[in-house]
Design a protein around this nucleic acid. Structure first.
Length: 700
DNA sequence: CTATTATGTCATGGC
DNA sequence: AGGCCATGACATAAT
């Protein structure tokens, strides 16, 4: 019983860490053996918990407890510490910002023995040889500069030993993520190396660690050419044995992990998904606590507060329904005689459809854990975590990245543009975009130059003042200038226009203005003989000018238009004008002013459009940025789920029955209950909500 | 010859 | 109430 308790204690510590991560305050201190440090010290990190003395004490007491010869002891110690580091890192599972990071660079020593927990019997392959293999993700650490934020996603793609089938999934995941970062200048090699680094951090067994320590070198970073000094460059045995008290442990856990896991506030999406995840678990854990079939109980206190580093864990409080995280997905478990396939499938489908989890059982479930089961069929191992990473989630992320690559989708772009067009009633077509204020200015300048004859003093607003020409003498027929040749041409080449138009206009519009039709004989005379005067007339001004001449108006149109009302009235009183003349003068003034007003109005409209275009661009950039942030958050969530699953597997793999044998993951799974307990339940009982667990009543 | 653009003009409404 | 301005709608010439 003592040995069993020892095993369970080791597993419970790690499981408790996991629960603490999820916001559940776990009080296992009372259950811990006296030789172990208080749990909060373990969680909180570098304390006296893992001192050299403590380490040796652990060894000594472990022997004293008659530990199973194949487990714990040194391996357990490092396993616990590794788990601790992973838990610490979880609160920093976030996308790092671009920064310069120095990473431990080493190559796994040939023949280095993998961890007893995770190593199994994997060959030592280089990533180039087997990019997606388990070992390929743990070979080297390199120095790199300006690493993109997306690369943290590799943590989620960390392969686990034991299943070659799911290593391929891992490869696919890496490929997906790698493709997403191509445009960011991140090479595939970065991914693999990054993965290896992470894997080294997460799972490096003590022998690997020792290799690192005993190989202090300065290496040249392959990317930046910087000299990279090993973080373990000055190791001592005490550093190894007293990791938490020396720079090794702190720098390893903090400095190595933090670049991948910088502290950030929890994304809302992540919290929502977690809550959704938790909310699904009620029915599965229902009635489990009422079981009389001796389930393995792990007494857990309700969460009261999060302390220490774990207090920063951006996970929502999960005081209840924790089991949702570990809801088993039985989709891949084809047990014909199982009485619960339907229920399990139901649960898994729910989870998958809701959270988009990926079933990584094959990846994460070490085959050696199934020593009591059929090792030849590891691919059908059930996933007690219910598939933390689902294809749906990956699809979502992929789609998100697709959107990110294009800023945002074509559909969205089209919609946005359509909205804008419909709202403004204008088109943002390419022909309009190039229109620049200067261009319109010059465009208007030509008209202004022609109309400037009326803008002498009254022109305001958007009229181009620089283009104004003092036309005080415009009625005096200022000399011909080349830039007005087109108006001269127009006037001279189309005399018939002015022979008919004024009359037709008068008849057609029949405005209230008492316009007097000009004598047809006057037009040809003006357009043909008086080149000097026509040179200053644009086609519109010329029309009114000609009308004025026809009506013998004794002052210039410029004065008519631009003089203040008082002066204008004064001017009218000076001359004895006929009624027709007065009407024409007033019409000329009205049209002239309205023409300038129209020009100003169009300029304002154009400026408004340009401003709106700028606003659209700005909003587009903002949206792109937010989409990218969302994608990063999703990746972060993916990583966290992966880590949770890994921790689950770690904990489960260390549970032993009375005979010291590991539990079969095919037959047993850990479950959370609504009251904070953890139950090791037979899978055969999972689907039977009303039925009781058949196995194990180990309350610790 | 047609579509687009630029500009002028009118009607209307607000100040 | 008249004048001024802004602007939509329309017309027309230019491109």
């Amino acid at each position: 019983m003592l040995s069993l308790k020892k095993y369970l204690t080791e597993g419970l510590i790690q499981f408790t860490i996991l629960l603490s991560l999820m916001g559940v305050r776990v009080d296992l201190d009372s259950y811990l053996p006296s030789h172990l440090p208080p749990l909060h010290e373990i969680i909180l990190g570098p304390t006296s918990a893992y001192t050299q003395t403590q380490f040796h004490s652990l060894r000594g007491t472990a022997d004293g407890y008659g530990v199973h010869p194949k487990s714990v002891d040194l391996d357990q110690f490092f396993t616990s510490r590794r788990l601790l580091n992973r838990v610490r890192a979880l609160d920093r599972l976030q996308v790092p910002t671009t920064e310069l990071d120095a990473w431990l660079v080493h190559r796994e020593a040939e023949g280095s023995v993998p961890s007893a927990q995770t190593g199994s019997s994997r060959p030592t392959d280089t990533p180039q040889e087997r990019p997606g293999s388990d070992s390929s993700i743990r070979d080297t650490l390199v120095t790199e500069q300006g690493r993109s934020t997306e690369e943290v996603e590799e943590l989620g793609a960390t392969a686990q030993p034991g299943s070659s089938d799911l290593s391929k999934e891992d490869i696919d995941l890496i490929d997906i993520l790698w493709r997403q970062d191509i445009d960011l200048g991140v090479g595939r090699e970065d991914f693999l190396q990054h993965d290896k680094r992470n894997d080294d951090m997460w799972e490096s067994p003590q022998d690997d660690l020792q290799v690192d320590i005993l190989d202090p070198t300065i290496q040249v970073d392959g990317e930046t050419g910087e000299n990279v000094r090993h973080q373990f460059s000055d190791p001592t045995p005490s550093d190894l044995l007293v990791p938490d008290s020396g720079p090794v442990a702190s720098t390893q856990s903090d400095e190595l992990l933090s670049p991948f896991l910088p502290a950030m506030e929890s994304p809302l999406d992540l919290e929502e998904q977690w809550q959704d995840l938790m909310s699904l678990m009620d029915m599965q854990v229902m009635d489990v606590n009422n079981s009389t079939e001796n389930p393995l109980y792990l007494s857990l206190n309700p969460p009261t507060q999060q302390d220490g580093n774990l207090g920063q864990v951006p996970l929502p409080s999960c005081s209840r329904d924790h089991s949702a995280v570990f809801a088993p997905t039985m989709d891949i478990l084809t047990v014909p005689d199982s009485p619960l396939p339907q229920f399990s499938s139901h649960n898994s489908s729910d989870l998958n459809s809701t959270f988009g989890f990926t079933n990584l059982t094959g990846i994460l479930f070490p085959s050696h854990l199934n020593s009591t089961t059929n090792i030849t069929s590891p691919q059908i191992l059930p996933d007690p975590l219910g598939g933390i990473l689902d294809e749906a989630l990956l699809d979502e992320i992929s789609l998100m990245d697709l959107a990110l690559e294009e800023g945002f989708s074509q559909v969205q772009t089209t919609q946005l543009q359509e909205e804008l067009d419909s709202d403004s009633g204008l088109s943002l077509d390419s022909h309009r975009s190039p229109v620049s204020p200067s261009g319109s200015e010059s465009s208007s300048s030509s008209s202004c130059s022609s109309s400037s004859s009326f803008s002498e003093e009254g022109a305001v607003g958007y009229s181009s003042d620089s283009e104004m020409i003092d036309q005080e003498d415009s009625d005096g027929a200022i000399g011909y200038q080349p830039e007005y040749s087109k108006f001269c041409r127009m006037s001279s080449q189309n005399p018939s226009h002015y022979q008919r138009l004024p009359f037709l206009e008068h008849v057609g519009h029949n405005h209230t203005y008492n316009m007097v039709p000009e004598e047809p004989e006057d037009k040809p005379v003006l357009s043909r003989g008086n080149r000097r005067s026509s040179g200053f007339l644009d086609r519109q001004a010329g029309r009114d000018e000609q009308r004025a001449r026809a009506m013998k108006i004794p002052f210039s149109n410029d004065k008519i238009i631009n003089l203040p009302v008082e002066e204008f009235n004064e001017l009218l009183t000076k001359y004895q004008l006929s009624e027709a003349q007065l009407c024409l003068v007033r019409d000329i003034r009205r049209r002239g002013k309205n023409k300038m007003a129209a020009q100003n109005c169009r300029k304002r409209k154009l400026d408004t459009i340009l401003n709106l275009e700028q606003e659209v661009k700005r909003l587009t950039r903002e949206r792109t940025s937010q989409l990218r942030e969302k994608g990063e958050n999703l990746r972060s969530l993916q990583q966290m789920k992966q880590e949770v699953e890994n921790l689950y597997q770690e904990v489960f793999s260390q549970l032993r029955d009375q005979e010291g044998r590991p539990y079969s993951s095919q037959r047993y799974a850990l479950h959370y209950t609504s009251n904070g307990n953890i139950v090791l339940m037979p899978r055969s009982a999972e689907g039977q909500q009303g039925r009781r667990p058949e196995k194990k009543d180990r309350r610790k």
